[in-house]
């Protein structure tokens, strides 16, 4: 096999169809970038799920003086004995692993650590915050059941299921991922059609050459390879652009929201995603070229 012969044919072919080649490169780049972003969101969601699942707790807030929660209407706050009894009740539930009490001062410390908003900090006093039990469950999936049975106890103002907050957040990320993947599939479809068209044009432009090649007994691989290589090279260039887009996304988007994510998206993952999307891009180009060749290039 004469490599330089093939490459000069490929180069001529790509230049002859310059506009089509550019269209293929752009579609492959956008499609593969979206595929990559979808995969990056996916990996972020699953690593965060893993991280958070064993940290989620139920926060059982207790009534304070003159509390506005309906459950606390006209009821005095619990005495220390009542709190101990409630803690005991919760502790004895089979689904519960551990119960910790958080008093108003601890709540204030945690609040200070979380809030950067100094205006809010200046008006909130430790006395404004509720005491709570932090309930750690053996299996976070039981959160709803446990929270329902605690809800009825006297002195309980409200229960925050962190799991629900996370689910809302993950739900949003999943939608984003599905959108990225959906558009990626459309782009892949468009790329396939474009590549098919490019190969068809190319086969038409080179019909003299291929006719003579067939006649003098060039093997099918030799006749088809320049066309397939055109697809591969366009796919690879598109893949490189997609890689650049993915790196930019990682730096600008994922690192920007990293503080909320707790688990950063590693460069390893990005490298894996880039490799995968490139391979997908090239495979799509090769397949599209081959399928069109079968139709337009008699061998």
């Amino acid at each position: 096999m004469r490599a330089n012969f093939i490459f000069s044919e490929v180069w001529i072919g790509l230049r002859r169809n310059l506009t089509m080649t550019i269209a293929v490169i752009v579609t492959v780049a956008v499609g593969m970038a979206l595929l990559g972003i979808g995969l990056m969101i996916n990996s972020q969601v699953s690593s965060m799920t893993g991280y958070w699942v064993d940290k989620v707790e139920l926060s059982v807030f207790l009534c304070k003086k003159n509390d506005v929660f309906p459950a606390c209407k006209d009821k005095p706050p619990l005495t220390d004995d009542q709190k101990a009894a409630l803690k005991q009740t919760i502790q004895s539930m089979p689904e519960v692993e551990r119960v910790d009490f958080e008093d108003q001062n601890q709540a204030y410390e945690n609040f200070k650590a979380q809030q950067g908003n100094s205006l809010l900090l200046s008006v909130i006093q430790p006395g404004d915050l509720s005491e709570s039990f932090r309930v750690k469950l053996k299996n976070p999936d039981n959160a709803t059941a446990v929270s329902e049975s605690i809800q009825g106890q006297t002195g309980v103002a409200n229960i925050v299921n962190q799991r629900q907050i996370l689910d809302t957040y993950f739900g949003f990320l999943s939608k984003l991922r599905n959108m990225a993947l959906g558009v990626a599939i459309l782009m892949v479809f468009a790329a396939t059609l474009l590549i098919g068209n490019t190969v068809r044009l190319s086969a038409y432009n080179r019909r003299r050459e291929t006719g003579i090649m067939r006649l003098v007994g060039a093997s099918n691989i030799y006749i088809q390879l320049p066309f397939v290589m055109e697809g591969v090279i366009a796919g690879l260039i598109g893949g490189v652009f997609a890689a650049v887009l993915l790196i930019v996304t990682k730096v600008l988007l994922f690192e920007g929201i990293q503080s909320y994510m707790a688990v950063p998206l590693g460069w390893n993952t990005v490298a894996g995603v880039i490799t995968f999307t490139m391979a997908v891009g090239v495979v799509i180009c090769v397949l599209a070229s081959f399928i069109t060749l079968r139709r337009y290039l008699r061998v």
């Binding site: 003299r208 050459e209 003579i212 067939r214 006649l215 003098v216 007994g217």
Partner: peptide, 19 residues
């Protein structure tokens, strides 16, 4: 088939050269 065609030369009325 390509190997068969390598052992057969062909000439046509319209030459079929690459311009």
């Amino acid at each position: 088939v390509p190997h068969l065609r390598r052992r057969i030369g062909c000439v046509f009325q319209d030459f079929r050269l690459l311009p």
